[in-house]
Design a protein around this nucleic acid. Structure first.
Length: 208
DNA sequence: TGTAAGATCTAG
DNA sequence: TAGATCTTACAA
């Protein structure tokens, strides 16, 4: 097992989204107990010129990690239920991150099933909220570094350029013209994509 | 202080 | 297809 060094993260979010495909994310849950998944789907988010990015309107308490050094984890909570995992890129002071949307389970599958319930292997991590739950990642990991903590990256099986597909990002309502989603073509663990924003919820009608 | 939207998931 | 669930950001 070889941890990826800090130099790897010195690239733009868009380059990183493609470069991460095929790499292995590892969480050392407890000493000697590893949860590992191979990255098969990513999305790039940039602070400037990208309305869909949390940092498009500048630094806030939530998104401040995105302005930090490359190789940092940005984890946030959304929809009242789910943690989403990003890797910070771009030089310190510039907001940019890559959302990890889907992985192929490699090691610790029994523990992932405990986290996720009884599922087929390819359903354990085929969505951004699912993979954080499978790996046991929460807000505790927000702001931690891939270079020294229990969560880190390893070189995996390289992916050829012709195996990589591109599409608009999923679940957003702004900047939908940007095709910054990258995934391994035809891989069974890629998430079930829904282009466009989530369906609007009904307003609750209060009786007087 | 109130309100609406949100980088989602699951059951029915 | 709709509901769960709750934090963040923005408007008043």
């Amino acid at each position: 097992m070889q941890r990826v060094s800090g130099e790897f993260f010195n690239m733009s979010a868009l380059e990183m989204a493609a470069a991460l495909l095929g790499m292995v994310m590892t969480h050392e849950l407890s000493p000697g107990v590893f949860l590992r998944g191979r990255i098969v789907e990513t999305e790039a988010y940039l602070g400037s010129g990208d309305e869909a990015c949390h940092a498009s309107r500048g630094k806030t308490k939530r998104n401040s990690v995105m302005f930090g050094p490359p190789g940092t984890l940005y984890v946030y909570f959304t929809y009242g239920n789910h943690y989403l995992l990003n890797i910070v890129t771009e030089p310190e002071g510039v907001a940019g991150a890559v959302l990890l949307r889907a992985m192929e389970p490699l090691e610790g599958i029994g523990i992932m099933r405990q986290h996720r319930g009884r599922k087929h292997d390819h359903e354990l991590m085929n969505g951004p909220g699912k993979l954080t739950r499978a790996l046991g990642l929460t807000l505790e990991h927000n702001g931690t570094s891939l270079l020294g903590g229990p969560v880190f990256l390893e070189k995996g099986t390289p992916v050829r350029q012709e195996e990589i597909s591109t599409s608009p990002r999923i679940g957003i309502s702004k900047s939908t013209e940007l095709t910054w989603r990258k995934f391994i073509t035809g891989h069974p663990c890629v998430s079930r994509g829904r282009i466009g924003p989530p369906v609007k919820k009904k307003k609750r009608i209060l009786e007087s």
